[in-house]
Amino acid sequence: MEIPKITMTMLGASGSGKTMFLHGMYATLSAGIAGYFVYTRDPDHDIDLMDTWDRLNDEGVLPPPTEEVPTPYDFVLKHGITPLISIDCLDFRGGATDARSTSAADTAQLLNRLRISDTIYLALDGQHVGEWVNNLVPGGRANRARDPMKVARLSMFIQQAAEARMASGKPAPSIVVLITKADVLPAVTGMRKAEALRLAVENMDQIVPVVYSQGITALVCPVQIGNFGIEKHNMVDPTTVDPVGLHRPFIFSLWHFLTEVIQSDEETMRAIADSRSAAHEELSQLKGGFWRELFNGSRISSLSQSLENWDQEKARVDQNIRTARDRAGVLMEQLAKLPILKDGKLQV
């Protein structure tokens, strides 16, 4: 059976940890975590992703930045042995969103991609998030105007793509705000990680306003590859590799997709109920009396057939909704305690 496919695009400033997230996510999920697995349809992509991960684990070498040409990956997310969804993933290099280093063609390519994206991952460097959190508390020392995360521009791209999708009748993309290198938050902020994250989420409307937009569902997801510290480095101690939370963004993307499916199916159910009700009423009018039935025989037959078809369709859609709800419930177990924003409101 063909599984549904969603399109995912990953954005973030250079050095925000997008590429590292992708490698770590794949290493974690392809080995299996919490009953979920991922594999690449192309076995060669598995080798590419894992070569880099192996170098990190064996020699402590951090991966190079994403190349000029965006790298596409076709992932399959499974629960146990059951394939759930195919994810067409594109990792844009950090500079692709930098106005000074990109051509209009690059920007157009990015915007086109965002418009077809069902889910967008926005990587924010944990160190910069921590510095920004410092601004929120008395005695903060970072300069807000610097915007090292390029959030204003990225947020604008996402906003445009979301509006374009909604204008064409499609649902807005789900957004995952990845706070990468979350291990550095305590060192940068002097707070416990949970406290720093709470402040970041509560004030996310200032840093990534698009996640508070009507129609948008967003997850704020802290992730880390290891405990590498706040020093800038190209090499790390391999024994400090300690992936945390890397599987959750994919889980959220699937969960959001299912909620969209449920919503769409519920609309279908309402449409079926309306059509059925109208047909039933027309049928009861046509069935009153011998002559009326005689002259409207073909219409009566057609309406009866339609009612039967709608009943079958209703049963099928109802089953789909129940299956999707069950699956979404199981997925939500993995997202428990993580902040989810929907239509500008915090859900957890």
Partner: peptide, 19 residues
Amino acid sequence: PGAARDVRQLVSHIQRALD
């Protein structure tokens, strides 16, 4: 400790094949 990563590759091959 790195031998577990070899297992990951086996698991990935198996998952792809099972589908």
